[in-house]
Amino acid sequence: MTTLSAREALRLAKPLPPLPGLDESINLSIRGRSLWADARRRFLRNHAAVASLVILAIIVLLCAFGSVASPHAFDEPDFENMHAAPSAETAHWFGSDNLGRDLYVRTLLGGRISLMVGALGAVVAVLIGTLYGATAGFVGGKTDSVMMRLLEILASFPVMFLVILLMTFFGRELWLIFLAIGAVSWLDMARIVRGQTLSLKRKEFVEAAHVCGVSTFGIITRHIVPNVLGIVAVYATLLVPSMILFESFLSYLGLGVQEPMTSWGALLEQGAKSIEAAPWELAFPATFLVTTLFCFNFIGDGLRDALDPKDR
């Protein structure tokens, strides 16, 4: 005789026989829907968000692998073809820049850097913000008011000026850009997470964890944080484009990524200089940047609509 696991037993037991006298077409077996399944269904119904997801995936794949198709290297000058227009003959599909470097390869490389800064900056911001907010909200009392006071002080700093100040004094290193951008962008995240935590900590399952003797840190990481992940996901998605924008802004001013490496902001700065003679030098990086920003915004909106509990 085989023993059934609990799950199998449930599965076998589930479909109820239709009650006599009821139409067969009415399906009475009710399947539970998890929050995430529900959210996925709603997200998939949002056409703008799904289209953005597809376009974004294409851009990411192109940035990651697209440069293999080109015969040019990102830092190889081609003095025969400076400021060359896009053409299939020279294999400069997006044209070339003032040193004859291939713009197709450079746009994709710049995209890799921009997307990486965006993603890593968002990860840093999410990590700091979630932990900070969850701690402040959960511990409460004096700790909470001190932590929130500190947050308010930081929030009233001129962030961009401070980041440029850091870049000036500590050098223009790529990792420093990640760190600086991430480190100044966690404030909103912390505030949102704190608000959620405040309402979560009165819930029964948290009390149960208390009774079982789980430590405060354990409750925060095992019970509070997973429950705020939905809203964190939404804001992280909206954070990525603002990170990308910030990095582009720094690079545009010449304070971000340094030559021969590049990013969309640095390419735009070059393109803006030669816009009259070679408008494609601006057009291609700008199209990529703006499309990416739009996609992230649509996906963020879609996620918010999908995960927002107020909607139910």
Binding site: F161, I164, G254
Partner: peptide, 28 residues
Amino acid sequence: FVNGALNRDYPMVLGLTILVGALTIFFN
């Protein structure tokens, strides 16, 4: 500010950061 940052003109960058910070705080 940008020229200060590009030229590593430290007092300029520092001064402007504090000035803009003060204006921000005051305005808020």
